[in-house]
Nucleic acid binder design. Structure first.
Length: 588
DNA sequence: GCCGTTTTCGGCCCGACTGTTTTCAGTCG
């Protein structure tokens, strides 16, 4: 058994290797270590699993990890440290990772700060700033010292990633304002928001205009802006009052496609795409795809090929256009080259919502008001799934109350036109895996969702056993927000995903994507695994308030990031089709 | 140090902005 298997710390160590090589001017290694660090960060616990199963050989099969780095990871997992890293720390005892968090502070500056002022960490930096010693370093001045102080301030005023659900409307409001300007043809959101990432580090906007300067002037004066980092002819960057940055690029209309492609990212997707372009004799930048000529060993763009739309660019590279949501720099490029991209579920494909609440428990609106809002959002049915009695503090329903609710739903269904309510529940899974309501009561319902709201700290083995027992109950149709995480607030429960997927498949239980902004659960990677396993998905809002129906597009974004198609998602079916599915399940 | 529908050797993404310069280095996305 190893001593230290913390993938997060490992990612930081690899990052520090990258920076150290960069400081020393070593070519190519910085990027190799950077990629390895990102890879480990993204894989998380999977790195440890891979190492446990297949050792160094397994590690080498991971992206960005070859012989040398695999050996270092192996050493770290076995002994808890890496000799070469310890030596590096001895000769350069600097908290590289901590300092690098500061905007504008890169490897060369960290090197110089230590060489001239013996700055080892953020505290040393603060002292040096206070005593105005930094401006005395060669090639530094009062302005760059100020800039560094600002960067430090920004970091300390917590610049954590924000929830997509919170930022998306803000970005769209900014776009709407700029769009209305004279001379502006296009104005759109790019970056991680366009990719529908669950959290967002900054807002990337792109505009095309005959009068770029006017757009820039308007941008830095938007009401959401609190200060301006940079303002140029084609690019500006500002700080927003709600605590994150927004960038705007303004380009000529004729290169819109290239710019949109470029600033949609993600970074790794773009690096791979530019490498692919190079291998086919092109070079790609934000102004288009160019044929390449070599002058004195240097690549120079020569003739413009295409730039009007993203599709043109991908097509010239011999591939289909991957939807933004799956541009992560992994197998989407290969799939696009082989013309094997899936037809992702469209944003308007949902017909119903399988998880909603009402004033019967902790919702804020009556069943009827919720139904009317759902219908206004284009849905034709929804399941009413209030909580059960284990959640006593919100008056969860017992069997008797549930029957009473069913009678109300019967009455409402007679009254509603073009909309149907399904009788359902969000039934608690108790600690031992039994359900909070009697099977006889569950059998009366159209739709039984189950979920966990207690005992979230069970061991992986216990938690998995608990869930498997619940899913094996023949009354259960769906497992709601399976990992129980709350982004930025609560870690996911420990569970063996492979076993849970296998059980869901065996017992024909659907897995839910809960669209609430801080849940986003299942998450993208889990969705992809579920889709691969052929398990049905539902995309629900878990609406506790009429406004929550608007979050459905977040859940659809997650599903698309998980390569889900319309056929994979249960509530894209019409009500008769859904009923047929449920009847078939009951017969099994 | 990693990687392979031109390669197991010889490649390795690209441009804007800032600050301190006087033609460029550093950082970022």
């Amino acid at each position: 058994m190893g001593k230290n298997q913390n993938p997060e710390e490992l990612a930081k160590i690899l990052f520090e290797f990258s920076y150290r090589h960069e400081m020393l001017g070593v070519p190519f290694k910085p990027r190799a270590y950077q990629l390895a660090s990102e890879s480990v960060g993204a894989l998380g616990g999977e790195v440890v699993e891979t190492w446990r199963k297949d050792g160094i050989k397994g590690l080498k099969s991971l992206p960005g990890i070859g012989q040398s780095i695999a050996e270092k990871i192996d050493e770290y997992f076995r002994t808890g440290k890496i000799k070469e890293y310890a030596q590096m720390k001895k000769s350069f005892p600097v908290d590289i990772w901590g300092l690098s968090r500061i905007e504008g502070l890169g490897p060369k500056h960290i090197r110089d700060l230590y060489a001239h002022l013996k700055v080892k960490d953020v505290d040393d930096l603060k002292k040096a700033l206070k005593e105005q010693r930094i401006r005395k370093i060669p090639r530094w001045g009062a302005k760059s010292e100020d800039k560094l102080a600002r960067g430090l301030g920004l970091m300390e005023s917590s610049s954590e990633r924000k929830l997509l659900g919170e930022i998306l409307p803000v970005a769209e409001a900014m776009v709407e304002k700029l769009k209305r300007m004279k001379g502006v043809k296009h104005c759109v959101v790019a970056g991680s928001i366009r990719r529908m990432q669950e959290t967002v580090g900054d807002i990337d906007l792109i505009a095309t205009s005959d009068d770029p300067k006017a757009v820039m002037d308007a941008f830095v004066k938007l009401p959401q802006v609190s200060s301006v980092h940079e303002k140029g002819a084609t690019r500006s960057s500002v700080r927003l009052a709600l605590g994150l940055d927004a960038d705007l690029r303004v380009v000529p209309d004729k290169v819109f496609g290239a710019t949109l492609q470029y600033f949609t990212g993600d970074k790794r997707h773009n690096v791979l795409l530019r490498e692919l372009a190079l291998s086919k004799g092109f070079t790609l930048n934000e102004y288009g795809l160019f044929t390449l000529k070599r002058v004195k060993g240097k690549h120079l763009p020569s003739k413009l090929v295409v730039c009007k739309t993203e599709e043109e660019i991908y097509s010239k590279l011999g591939m289909d256009t991957p939807p933004p949501e799956i541009r992560v720099g992994a197998d989407e490029i290969e799939a696009a080259l082989k013309h094997r991209l899936p037809a992702l579920l469209p944003y308007d494909a949902l017909r119903g919502d399988m998880h909603t609440h009402s004033t019967w428990t902790d919702g804020t609106a009556s069943i009827e008001d919720m139904a009317k809002t759902a219908q206004a959002h284009g849905l034709t049915y929804q399941a009413v799934t209030d909580h059960t009695k284990a959640l006593a503090f919100i008056h969860g329903l017992d069997e008797k109350a549930l029957l009473k609710q069913c009678r109300e739903i019967d009455a409402l269904n007679k009254k509603l036109r073009g909309f149907t309510l399904l009788k359902g529940t969000e039934c608690d899974i108790l600690q031992d895996g039994t359900l909070d309501l009697a099977d006889s009561a569950l059998a009366e319902l159209d739709w039984v969702g189950v979920s966990i709201h207690s005992h979230m700290r069970l061991s992986r083995a216990e938690q998995t056993k608990r869930i498997l027992k619940a899913l094996a109950n023949p009354q259960v149709d769906c497992f709601f927000h399976p990992t129980c995480r709350l982004i930025g607030q609560r870690e996911p429960i420990e569970l063996d995903l492979d076993e849970v997927l296998a059980a869901a498949k065996k017992f024909r239980v659907a897995l839910e994507i809960d669209s609430l902004p801080d849940r986003s659960d299942l998450r993208d990677a889990h969705v992809r695994a579920a889709v691969r396993a052929g398990i049905a998905i539902t995309i629900d809002t878990d609406a506790h308030h009429p406004d929550h129906y608007a979050f459905a597009r977040l859940g659809i974004g997650v599903a698309r990031r998980g390569w889900a198609t319309k056929a994979d998602v249960l509530n894209t079916r019409s009500l008769p089709q859904l009923k047929k599915y449920l009847e078939k399940k009951k017969r099994k």
